[in-house]
Design a protein around this nucleic acid. Structure first.
Lengths: 162, 162
DNA sequence: CTTGACCTTGCCATCATTGGAAGGATTACA
DNA sequence: TGTAATCCTTCCAATGATGGCAAGGTCAAG
């Protein structure tokens, strides 16, 4: 199986397959005389595993852990559980953060007249950092970028950046 | 005021101030004879505005819009409201996605023995893409990376990538 | 044999941000 | 005044995951 078929079968783009190989997430494949990468059904299964983990928001680093656990069937499922639960915590925390941000913005927008008058608490809130009363626009999160990836791009390659 | 003081006062790093200038988010500043950038209190206020917008998860592109609206007080608040509400939608959608991912993982982890036995539905779920019954691990989101930024890094510069 | 579809590598771009290096400017202190 | 420490400058590189393009090799069908 060539990389194109493997990509289609696994849902991971050929580009990403090469990338995963380059960073060592998957081992180097056998090549034909011409230099074409050859994939087995087993490889496709691994790629599918990776894609599903990716769709669940795992970082490549975590996926590497999970793939290692998956390959080594003798490893305890404790490790897998631990990784998953750690990930759940992060996901929930980030979801909470996003909701708080949305709530803050909604609150500000609610008091924005929306007509042609230039009074708008959104702007004022941003300006003063607390002009709307109890809302703490400074409330800082200690978390970095949310590790969400776009899922299999069956649809469009558009990068919905807000 | 030099860039260092402006950075401290605004909460935006000197590095980022230069970056924002380079991409045109803020105008080029006056320089001293030696080439040092000079900032006024007004500039610091603008930077603070930018930081707070950034903390609310606005992309630089959106911040540019907001800053323009902020500067031009004659503009209708309708625009601000629209931008904010669009942003709210995206945030809520992304929060929902994260929660769904967390729920799926939690469900899988719940049935993971967590002892030394290698049976673990997390692994199996990832492997088969649906081994746990009704859970659709293929459920794809059509959304790209979440545009969350780390907030003012008072604490540590660590990038909590899960 | 040609055409078109596929593969290869390699480089560039994204986005926001950090880091570092090399060198000039200013400030503080002995 | 000399010097060291601290600031500032610009430029370059890296991050993570992905897309895109280009130049060139390969393969299968017509």
């Amino acid at each position: 199986m060539n990389i194109g078929q493997a990509a289609e079968a696994s849902g991971v783009s050929a580009k990403m397959i090469r990338y995963y190989e380059s960073i060592g997430l998957i081992p180097k494949t056998v090549r034909t005389e011409a230099g074409y990468r050859v994939y087995s059904d087993n490889d496709v299964a691994t790629l599918g595993f990776i894609r599903r983990a990716r769709d669940l928001g795992f970082s490549v680093e975590q996926i590497a852990e999970l793939v290692a656990l998956w390959r080594d069937r003798d490893r305890a499922s404790t490790d897998v559980k631990r990784i998953a639960l750690e990930h759940v915590e992060v996901l929930e925390r980030k979801a909470r953060e996003l909701q708080e941000m949305a709530a803050t913005l909604k609150h500000l927008a609610k008091h924005c007249h929306g007509d042609t008058r230039p009074e708008c608490p959104i702007i004022e809130g941003l300006q003063t950092g607390g002009g709307t009363g109890s809302i703490d626009l400074h409330s800082s999160s200690q978390f970095g970028a949310v590790g969400l990836r776009s899922a299999h791009r069956d649809t469009a390659p558009k990068r919905v950046r807000s």
